[in-house]
Simulated assay, not measured.
Amino acid sequence: MATVNLATVSNDAQLDQSADLDELRSLLAEWDLGTGPADTTSFEILESPPQLRIFGYADFRPTTPSGPDSGEACVPDLPQFAEAIAPYLVEPLVVRTVVYEKLRHRPSAGQVRIMPDGTVVTEDLEHTGTTVGVPRAPQDLADRDSSFEMNAGLKVTILDPARDEEHTETGVKDVDTDYGSENTVTVTYLDDSTQTFEGPGVGITNVETPE
């Protein structure tokens, strides 16, 4: 049985220097930002300088906050979420989500931009060239895109949120992921050497094919 995986990650969006960060934390804590088969989407607020980051192995579907005694069903409401956090932003919050089934099928990816004025822009990132998430198998890429050169390899970005590190690996021909209590991403390079990244929250955030 195929396992469907989801991954969401945002930029570190700059926040207003005068913003009440505790107030923003309380506001975000009221929202269910997204859910997936094995995880939920979370947020982190960095303080020097103030920035907002959203991430998780789940989708990005902010759900309307609702009190336990309200009697109203909670439903996804991205416009309301954007309106709520917009006053804190000084640059767009860009959130990318990818859905994939290991390396078997081409992933589908989308992007949401929340502007400082509350405007929401959604984009489909499913196109030839650059995608987000786990890469397709190299031979599959070669079949679909005649501009892909096998000897150039892939460029893969791996996020390690627990250590606040981001790794960019080039010359990659294959990637294997195993998401559990300790996530593992194993990269195989064109020379057949391998490298493993592991830890809570470790995952792939971007994959680029050669120009």
Rank of each mutant, 00 (worst) to 15 (best):
A19P: 01
A19L: 06
A19I: 07
A19V: 05
A19M: 04
A19D: 02
D20N: 09
L21Y: 00
L21M: 04
D22L: 15
D22F: 11
D22I: 15
E23P: 14
E23N: 13
E23C: 10
L24R: 02
R25W: 07
R25N: 10
R25V: 10
R25H: 08
S26M: 11
S26N: 11
L28Q: 00
L28I: 07
L28P: 03
A29C: 12
E30Q: 11
E30I: 11
E30S: 15
E30W: 13
E30Y: 13
W31N: 03
W31A: 04
W31E: 03
W31L: 12
W31Y: 11
D32C: 11
D32Y: 12
D32M: 15
D32R: 13
L33H: 08
G34N: 06
G34T: 06
G34Y: 07
G34S: 02
T35I: 12
T35W: 15
T35P: 13
T35F: 11
T35R: 13
G36C: 06
G36D: 08
G36T: 08
P37L: 09
P37T: 11
P37H: 07
P37F: 15
A38S: 00
A38W: 02
A38Q: 02
D39S: 09
D39L: 06
D39I: 09
T40R: 03
T40Y: 02
T40H: 05
T41K: 14
T41H: 14
T41I: 12
T41E: 12
T41A: 13
S42P: 07
S42H: 13
F43D: 05
F43P: 00
F43G: 01
F43T: 04
E44D: 13
I45W: 03
I45A: 06
L46D: 01
L46S: 03
E47Q: 01
E47M: 01
S48Y: 08
S48A: 08
S48M: 07
P49V: 03
P49G: 05
P49K: 06
P49E: 08
P49I: 07
P50G: 15
P50A: 09
Q51M: 00
L52C: 04
L52F: 09
R53P: 10
R53F: 13
R53Y: 08
I54H: 06
F55Q: 13
F55I: 14
G56Y: 09
G56Q: 10
Y57I: 15
Y57P: 15
A58Y: 08
A58L: 11
A58R: 14
D59E: 05
D59P: 04
D59C: 01
F60K: 10
F60S: 05
R61G: 14
